[in-house]
Design a protein around this nucleic acid. Structure first.
Lengths: 335, 335
DNA sequence: CTGAAAGCGCTTACAG
DNA sequence: CTGAAAGCGCTTACAG
């Protein structure tokens, strides 16, 4: 293995000059810097990670904790993990993946052994052990999502409440009087992620504010349950003309299939909007209006906030990212 | 931060004794060991990761590379990543996640900086850059899957060929004369993972050996495409009575929905088997016989083989794990 | 069975 | 603007 001494020798400088040339932490003559860089390139030098950790007390590793619960929607969660990894790399950081079975123990282990410089907590539940732990850990940490108690935390998340309001408003403005929310499975609301209840509550509250009748159903993931749920939402006399979907892609597909079978046109007979979806709703059987949840947005910001904590003080804060409404022609006036 | 010196002082021994007591690398008196362990516990001591890497030239970190391509089935791939992480932890290893955008560059970086002790390569394609790189890297590596050129590699994988043969045999033995394979989207076969072609080829070959007529279709992921594909497989006169599914859960669900709509009973009218599925086929609308792909099995073995390489010599080998047929009553004689 | 000490490869005050 | 050197916290021969 080629070490910093080899580089120093090849460049004809001292090892401290090599170190500083590489880190940019002190001013170096242009010519010296070039000599060092040439030597680095020629020798294929790469600093020893462990030595850097020990001497510099920086690891350039972030811990990412994502409990892939059985009832979570894998594609979306995977997208968040990958988005964190991507964002981290842009700051020259690698990502250590901590899984469910080891959530809090793992966080303890990697922080107290100084393996990581910071933590990104993904998919927090309302009352999350990892959040309680992170609060005590004194390691730069960012929570993606909003737990019940945000005291002392740095949180980033899409403003799900605003997202829900956006779609309700759009439907109300178009003239719909009865709107229905097709939600996630029941288990998700009970023990799951923090955001489905936030969407539900804001949806119901805004509908009331706008004087709309609102319905809410929580289908399981199977086709039959999804179909029954949509049927229930539409109502026996089909008075519900505005459908909001906050559920998995397959359930949204099933819902659209059912509408088609029933001869209900979108948006001619029923207007449909997807909220907080991570997939491309334009690729559904009917391209759907959407207030998207963009993992990259939340995760880029989360990593930025870890870096900011590393660099200096960041006050505890709950940052809610403003949602955007993307139209694809699936909302119109009621028939 | 409490260091090994603090522990040594508290236990009244030298730091080398602490180190050896913890690593078990040399014989220690029972009483001494206990004194050390007590001190460790009281002080909450955790060895500094960087110092261990530097002094011991072991990092206790494994790199996992998983290119989540857009056309891959996220739940299955996530399951593999998690299975590797779980297996690694059981050997006291952590897992560093390397993503698509950085696949080969990332492997180079983490190995040449001595950040990882070994590599697990997930979801290899037939002709995979990462495999070519890993071969030259001289770091313990295991490939999950079978690339075209396995020379010099340690590969582990389900024996997909045997799995395909198992289901064909089961259908042939039950008396079916025409069988159809519902495959993955076309893109997967062209540029994707290595195993779909293996299933396809073995399926077709075994069908021929058994004197069966065999069909093969590659639906996209949407409902319409899936329905069309099943219709095509069954044939205009419904002569195909044995359906094999090697595709995503949603497509399998759609297929079963279609059969039900057509009034075709399983297995009364059509026998159906799922092959190499990572989800629970017993939870489908009709519980399906399956030759499961169990991520934990492949990944446990993959991690074991990395550990074996770390411990000493392991010859290059392609280990194919024997498939198991799990019956759920979805195969019977043809009508 | 245990200890004193070298050394792993860096970073960063400390000097000049 | 650059260098010599201390020191980060371990592991592991080397002694006894």
């Amino acid at each position: 293995m080629t070490s910093i001494h080899d580089v120093a020798r090849a460049a004809g400088v001292s090892i401290s000059t090599v170190s500083y040339a590489l880190s940019g932490k002190r001013r170096i003559t242009e010519t010296t810097r070039r000599k060092v860089e040439d030597a680095v390139r020629e020798l294929g030098y790469r600093p020893h990670a462990g030595a850097r950790m020990l001497a510099g007390s920086q690891t350039f590793i972030l811990a990412v904790t994502e409990p892939l619960r059985s009832y979570t929607y894998a594609p979306a969660h995977m997208a968040f993990v990958l988005a964190v990894a991507g964002a981290a790399r842009r700051h020259d950081y690698d990502v250590l993946l901590l899984t469910q079975e080891e959530a809090t123990a793992g966080l303890r282990r990697v922080t107290s052994s100084r393996l990581v410089d910071g933590i990104v907590v993904l998919d927090v539940t309302t009352d999350d052990d990892r959040v309680a732990l992170v609060r005590t850990l004194d390691v730069p940490s960012v929570v993606v999502g909003v737990p019940a108690d945000t005291d002392g935390l740095v949180c980033v998340d899409l403003d799900f409440e605003a997202a829900a309001r956006l779609v309700v408003d759009r439907l109300a403005d178009a003239g719909h009087r009865v709107v229905g929310l097709l939600g996630h499975p029941h288990a998700v609301y009970v023990q799951g992620s923090n955001f489905p209840p936030r969407v539900r509550d804001a949806f119901l509250a805004r509908a009331q504010e706008r004087g709309l009748e609102a319905r809410f159903v929580m289908p399981e993931r199977d086709t039959a349950s999804a179909r029954a749920a949509v049927t229930e939402l539409l109502g026996p006399d089909g008075d519900c003309t505005g459908l909001v979907m906050h559920c998995e892609e397959s359930v949204q597909t099933t819902a659209l299939d059912l509408l088609r079978e029933r001869g209900l046109a979108v948006p001619g007979d029923v207007s449909v909007v997807s909220v907080a979806s991570t997939f491309d709703t334009a690729a559904l059987p009917v391209p759907l209006d959407v207030v998207p949840l963009v993992p990259e947005r939340s995760c880029d910001r989360a990593v930025e906030l870890v870096m900011a904590q590393l660099a200096g003080g960041v006050e505890p804060v709950v940052e809610l990212l403003e949602p955007t409404y993307v139209a694809h022609g699936s909302v119109g006036p009621p028939p």
